[in-house]
Design a protein around this nucleic acid. Sequence first.
DNA 1: TATTTATTTAAGTATTTGCTTAAATTATTA
DNA 2: TAATAATTTAAGCAAATACTTAAATAAATA
Lengths: 123, 123
Amino acid sequence: MKFETSCIRAEADHVQILRCKEDLNAVSTSIEAISKIMALAGNEVRFKILFLLQRETELCPCDFADILEMSVPAISQHLRKMRDVNVISTRREGQTIFYSISKENEAFLTSILSNIESERKIA
Amino acid sequence: MKFETSCIRAEADHVQILRCKEDLNAVSTSIEAISKIMALAGNEVRFKILFLLQRETELCPCDFADILEMSVPAISQHLRKMRDVNVISTRREGQTIFYSISKENEAFLTSILSNIESERKIA
DNA sequence: TATTTATTTAAGTATTTGCTTAAATTATTA
DNA sequence: TAATAATTTAAGCAAATACTTAAATAAATA
């Protein structure tokens, strides 16, 4: 496909288009990283996991399975995805593995999770 | 499938499990709504669209197509998804349709978008 | 009114996602 | 050391996603 200009309208602001492209370029790494985290948090199960971790500090896979009423492998796979990008971390205690929110992303996640309940309690 | 308890370990804190379930129940509507928005913003193309809208206030589909170097229908379909849940709004001017971030979700999105560049500029 | 332009919608398709069940790891304990 | 327990991994599959191209709308203009 060819990408030059999609509209030929007189009002199209080519300076603006170019500036936008440059702006995007300057933050592309950051955008990629954040949208990756957002995509993870955008799954309702994983969002609940993060919500629970914030409240309880740490929980193990079978806790999540009980709380969310899901199979342990399903939970484990969600945890793995978040662990792979360092959104959550693990600590082993015997055969139990405790998950918690990584320090690295704590502030960002807290700011998102803070929107729960308060002003968004509609129903 | 049966869901009683997934682990039989002595340390399993049944009071905690129950409390977590109640906590989740109390915010379920809010969690559902927010994780829906997060899922939308979790797509890199849509996240870029939101980033651009914040900087430029309003843009039309063919602007996005030019800036992101994507086809107009592809852009249009992304815009529709966000419009369907009122993340963005439209204004018509002749045959051009301008999209902007909805007032309703502006604060939430701004708080997320504010993480771009600043502390997350790694590369 | 016919043509052009901006946008949307629809149908088709390849890829990704999120579960399932079964098997493999890893650690505890009898 | 054998059995049990917590977790992970793997294979398979149905549903969702994000694009493509083609066709349909809707507004401006010649």
